[in-house]
Design a protein around this nucleic acid. Structure first.
Lengths: 339, 339
DNA sequence: CTGTTAGCGCTTTCAC
DNA sequence: GTGAAAGCGCTAACAG
């Protein structure tokens, strides 16, 4: 009680006071020595760092967070099934700036209030959402003063930034190419009902078909995985009889559809063209050679991180939406004709 | 640069004092109201919670961490390429116990000192490593008093717990089945040199071949991805001429090998059996139907989390290694014969 | 440049 | 059962 010096430092809790004592300086000098911007004589810094090394001292980021009102924690809201590259790109990009991702995975695509409350408790400096947020949830970020960047989601709420791969343009590329190659009878495998990304891609598909004076013969939904793509194919063919082309809202379902088509003796792309979206690694595998739109993940992640950091540094920085074009990967799963 | 100053001013920061004032109670009562174990009259708790709700108060986990000497943060050390299901299983399991995963991804398979130092700074309550740690690094966890659980890695250092899928037994199942089905000329695709998992699986393969009085005709390495599996296949065939069976250290490479084999006009499994390890989802896809060992990821993750929590609750709790049997998934990529 | 001092928001004895 | 007060380890004015 009376001696702060001796409280509980015996165990694995080396504090800046211990370092200060050993180096024969004040505690605040220790603090400065560990601050890259800290005004301190090189000589003294060296002494402090030596003492710190001897004790195995590392500044306590939790205490620092309390004091600085800045946790250096970034919340990442991400649904169960997701692309692994995204998360690792995000993490490495963040750590380059001294920020650490705190993970919040979601059972479904939808963010619950509980998850958000947990987030607020950690006083995260910012957040990424690769998930669906309701408008009032999005607004709560603003109320809490936590900058938010949406990934592949768009919101018309002014306060939110976003980085997207342009689904409409991407689908336009695909659909135009298919139409130009002479396809007329289209089937569509859409994403699940609650998927914003899926809805966006759907819009792109429909708009472009419309522009060509076409309507899809048949439309069905999948949940983005392989099995649902296979099942979707079956439903499409049952309903449509024959089809020239199938446009799938993502690659996994497209791959499922290819396998289902072949199981029925159809040749891809001779009898039927199939295209996907995302550019997952399996799209390149020999049996598929999927024609798809590859998202520029690294670019998108860098942009997202920069945008977030800007808004953390300056809360009044205007929000921004950056839309990246996806790149058409011409595989052999579709006969496609580019102007 | 004036933003540091006005962050504090602008930012909507409700503290327990604000709640206390509104509820007309002391700050410590607010604290107790939010502690499930807190001795407090239901009546008062209700009043506090009402006030908290009105202000949108959420206890500051950072401050709580400082005070309690417990961050509720769990470090997750994980290499770039990894199985997405693992991370989401881990996160959801952890959050059931009020712990949050703090992500540290690694460029390579190997953990650097920088990463560890970052970890110590956050005073994480425990750590998972799905990565290679050097013995002295493992010991540093003990020195820092941070319980560590290794995932699919084993270490003979006493202080470390681990959960593994039994690679030796898994490979034994596969190799025995192949031998029993009459295969004699074996090729092996091993993992990269620095992979402990790979080494373990290799041991299992060699030991079992040995027991059958066989040696692999040819052995080569891949880096666990599809392309490296294809390349590995080519090298194997160049060296061996013909082969009865190929045992691959993981599924992605096995899938690559299947495609490479077919590209050479070989039929799988009629001309050549190919087996993998892991049980990734693509193993089930129509063209592959891979015979493999499926890791019980959910079981392993639950076990890992329990072990970690036990050791956090009681630092003297003995460390433990739990070895799970993988399940043989009989696909059609291999002719295999089980006793 | 360096040391002193006052918080950051919470938990936790300790009196009442 | 409730309130007052002392830290948890650090940063950031403010003096010297």
């Amino acid at each position: 009680m009376s001696n702060k010096a001796n409280t509980r430092a015996n165990r694995h809790n080396v504090t800046s006071y211990d370092v200060a004592r050993l180096a024969g300086v004040s505690q605040s000098s220790v603090s400065r020595a560990f601050d890259p911007e800290g005004r301190i004589l090189p000589d003294m810094r060296a002494r402090v760092l030596a003492a710190a090394a001897e004790l195995g001292y590392q500044p306590n980021a939790i205490a620092r967070g309390l004091s600085m009102q800045r946790s250096n924690l970034i919340a990442v809201l991400i649904p169960d099934l997701t692309y692994p590259e995204l998360l690792s790109a995000l993490t490495s990009r963040l750590s380059q700036h001294g920020m650490r991702p705190l993970l919040f995975t979601l059972e479904s695509n939808v963010v619950s209030g509980d998850v958000l409350n947990q987030m607020w408790r950690y006083r995260v400096d910012g957040a990424f959402a690769i998930a669906k947020l309701r408008p009032e949830q999005i607004r709560s970020f603003k109320a809490q003063g936590v900058p938010l960047v949406l990934y592949n989601r768009y919101s018309d709420i002014e306060s939110v930034s976003a980085v997207c791969c342009d689904a409409v343009r991407g689908e336009a590329l695909l659909v135009n190419g298919l139409v130009a190659a002479g396809h007329r009878r289209f089937g569509v495998i859409a994403g699940p009902e609650d998927s914003e990304v899926g809805a966006e891609r759907m819009t792109g598909i429909m708009r472009q078909l419309d522009a060509a004076g076409l309507r899809p013969i048949s439309v069905t939904r999948g949940n983005y995985d392989y099995a649902s793509g296979k099942a979707a194919f079956t439903r499409l063919i049952e309903e449509a009889g024959t089809l020239d082309a199938i446009v799938s809202a993502n690659d996994f379902m497209a791959i499922g559809a290819i396998d289902a088509a072949r199981a029925q003796g159809l040749r891809v792309p001779e009898d039927l063209s199939i295209v996907g979206f995302d550019g997952i690694s399996a799209a390149d595998w020999d049996p598929y050679q999927l024609t798809t739109i590859r998202q520029p993940v690294n670019l998108m992640v860098s942009a997202a991180v920069s945008m977030l950091l800007e808004r953390i540094a300056d809360p009044d920085h205007p929000s921004e939406c950056r839309m990246f074009a996806g790149q058409l990967e011409r595989g052999s799963s579709a006969r496609i004709d580019l102007g």
